[in-house]
């Protein structure tokens, strides 16, 4: 498990990092927490000649309040995101997803931006990001551009980040007062989800006024289940009230088949887990 030799730089500003990327082109790889990149290098599935470490760029770290949104720096470790009060208050769905992401060691090294940039459809952060309508700030030699969550995830391990660009921060519209739940289905605790459902709901009395639902590992990218969201609006937060909407969860999805189950089983799981996630987010019994 020894990677091939590579050169290494650790720039201290986004500009320098972007410049380094431009200079080395597709021979370079960004390293954030290394939790996904290092296994690839150690198994020699990839051998970049240059590794650019974002770890010394202080501006990429931390969570801040930005009016109607919170902003999470790309290099903020999962453990910090998971215990941040702003995240808990305004983006409870993200906090819920981070709580069961990997194990404590990985959560201390792995980063919010690294996980999203890696774009593993089984990763836990994509579905909350899509559900909450996150916006991604991407820096390149031409400056910074913003991409919506719907456009950010392109395909398996593929995002809108260009070869010479860096994800710098993620802006998440505040969902203050929304109830949230991340329903993650695994066989062992440290596993990536076989399927997971991210749900946030805004309640008015016993009724779901608005809902946001994201799906993990139900296709080549994280998905947003708008058909479910629409069907939930105005429904009572009861098993019967939610069931019909949850039945729509797998519509139009193309989930993978692997050792843990085939696509048909995943579709079934998506429906059951959506019902449970929504009910739990609504704080209802019978979840």
């Amino acid at each position: 498990m020894i990677p091939a030799a590579f050169d290494y730089v650790a720039p201290t500003s986004v500009e320098d990092a972007v410049a380094a990327l431009a200079q080395h082109g597709d021979e370079a790889k960004i390293i954030a927490g290394g939790q996904s990149l290092l296994p690839v290098l150690r198994m020699r599935l990839n051998a970049p000649e240059m590794v650019i470490d974002l770890g010394r760029i202080d501006t990429l770290r931390g969570v801040r309040d930005d009016g109607d949104a919170i902003v999470i720096g790309a290099m903020t470790p999962h453990s910090v995101v998971g215990s941040d009060p702003l995240v808990a208050q305004h983006a409870g769905l993200v906090a819920a997803a981070v709580e069961h992401l990997a194990d404590a060691q990985v959560r201390h090294r792995g980063t919010f931006g690294g996980a999203l940039a890696h774009a593993d459809p089984a990763g836990d952060l994509g579905a909350p990001a899509r559900a909450l309508g996150a916006e991604f700030a991407i820096a390149g030699s031409g400056g910074t551009r913003t991409v919506s969550a719907d456009d950010f995830f392109v395909d398996l391990f593929e995002t809108a980040i260009g070869e010479d660009e860096i994800l710098t921060e993620v802006r998440i519209p505040k969902h203050t007062g929304w109830g949230s739940h991340y329903e993650k289905f695994v066989r062992v605790a440290h596993q990536w989800p076989i399927v997971a459902v991210a749900a946030s709901v805004r309640m008015e009395g016993g009724t779901i006024a608005e809902a946001r639902v994201g799906l993990t590992n139900m296709g080549s990218t994280p998905l947003r289940a708008r058909q479910v969201e629409d069907a939930l609006a105005g429904q009572p937060a009861t098993p019967d009230g939610v069931r019909a909407a949850a039945e729509l969860a797998a519509d139009g999805t193309e989930p993978p088949s692997d050792l843990n189950g085939d696509a048909g089983y995943r579709r079934h799981l998506a429906r059951v887990l959506t019902r449970r996630a929504v009910l739990a987010a609504a704080g209802a019994d019978g979840a």
Binding site: P39, V40, R44, A122, S257
Partner: peptide, 21 residues
Amino acid sequence: ATDGAAMPHFDPAEPGRSSTE
């Protein structure tokens, strides 16, 4: 029987010199 692929969490198809022997 159990069949299907492994979970592809570590993406080999990223840019960079590829070497799989």
